[in-house]
Design a protein around this nucleic acid. Structure first.
Lengths: 213, 213
DNA sequence: TGTCAAGGTGAACGATCATTTACGTTGAGG
DNA sequence: CCTCAACGTAAATGATCGTTCACCTTGACA
């Protein structure tokens, strides 16, 4: 006999997650206190514990969301049936990060800047949270295999140079991660310029006409 | 009238820095306590404060060292008088990270793994430590300009595709940062394979013989 | 409309942290 | 070899943290 409907409970939980994400983006996971999160969500200090067993559970929820949202665009292009070029894969990733907002698992609208800051915080957390590391590594491998498959298709179609697809996928993800870091921490605002440079360096020889940007 | 000679004082300071770096690499900046650092250095809790005014000062020293060591190899190749290819720039960066150890500003031998973990931790710290961010951004810009100049020379020599050198430099740094992250957090051990893939994707057309690896 | 399980509150708790401090110890200069 | 400023120690301090708990409050269901 719940006091509130499941829908309202889910909405409240999403509010707390959103408040926590705002706090984490600004102050980091460990400089943000639970009272900070509660205050940002407009509730008292004990309220979040009706929805999450611990602070770590909130961190896990946000980290999973952040990683998924970062990889989603590249993975969708990689999962398409045709043979994407390298430029297509990179462009898809960057276009999503160039937008102002994204929508998280609970339907909350999240500023991209906030999401990216949480991703960088999560990287640090990976190094000492084994549970988070295991989940993140699993997700990473799934994306990597998906991209490697796309590269193999691209190579068969002659649109991708003949490199080891497994390592090639890692290179593309490295570009995405590196872009993300510069956008958050090193004043990279010219997404289009970065994208053009990647295309020019990667497959400019194959696609001088700029197809797929 | 110092109780110990300046040389011994510097050596002790370097020991504390090294101990702190070991702790930070394992546990992160904010999960590592000052007593942890002191214990790892083999001194009592108050001793580090004879050498550093605060914990943040230790973090700054380690972060500056870590960033410098990461960028050094790429910057050295970029600063050379001739026109390096893209593959040269990337290969120089990765070769240093493939080695087992590096030597820090105080002459301490540091395992590469430990250094890279500190770099990732530092990225998080950048987002909320303004002083660290300013210093890191300054260093980043210096490296970026150096690489951009090298790209211009490479373009003049016909060894580098005609892309905007400023953005191109960002792409190369993104590759380095992305590689670093995967090595620390996502099980990337095949440095040579990654390097080959980058060369194959970047300037395979220009240097099919593998020159400069 | 009445009931009661669950939501929500805010003070309190025990632990831990960065930093300070009072006091012994040491070694380089005179 | 003596002296004393600086090193090193270890307990203490004050603040803050994640989490709990005793107690209202609320609203969905009967």
């Amino acid at each position: 006999m719940p006091r509130i409907t499941p829908e309202r409970r889910e909405a409240k939980r999403a509010e707390i997650v959103a408040a926590a994400r705002r706090c984490f983006a600004r102050g980091g996971f460990h400089q943000t206190s639970m009272p900070d999160i509660a205050a940002a969500a407009g509730v008292s200090a004990g309220a979040p514990y009706r929805y999450f067993a611990s602070k770590e559970e909130i961190i896990l929820a946000i980290a999973a969301d952040a990683f998924r949202l970062i990889f989603e665009p590249m993975e969708q292009v990689a999962a398409a049936a045709d043979a994407p070029s390298l430029g297509d894969l990179v462009a898809a990733s960057l276009r999503a990060l160039g937008a102002g907002t994204v929508t998280d698992a609970a339907g909350q609208v999240v500023p991209v800047e906030e999401l990216l800051q949480c991703v960088v915080q999560t990287w640090s957390e990976l190094l000492r949270n084994d549970g988070l590391h295991a989940r993140a590594a699993e997700g990473f491998e799934r994306v990597r295999r998906s991209i490697a498959d796309a590269l193999r298709r691209g190579q068969a179609a002659g649109a991708v140079p003949t490199v080891d697809p497994e390592s090639g996928a890692r290179v593309l993800i490295a570009l995405l991660h590196g872009f993300l870091l510069q956008r958050v921490a090193f004043g990279l605002t010219d997404t289009a310029g970065f994208n053009d440079a990647v295309r020019g360096l990667l497959d400019g020889a194959e696609h001088p006409d700029g197809t797929g940007r």
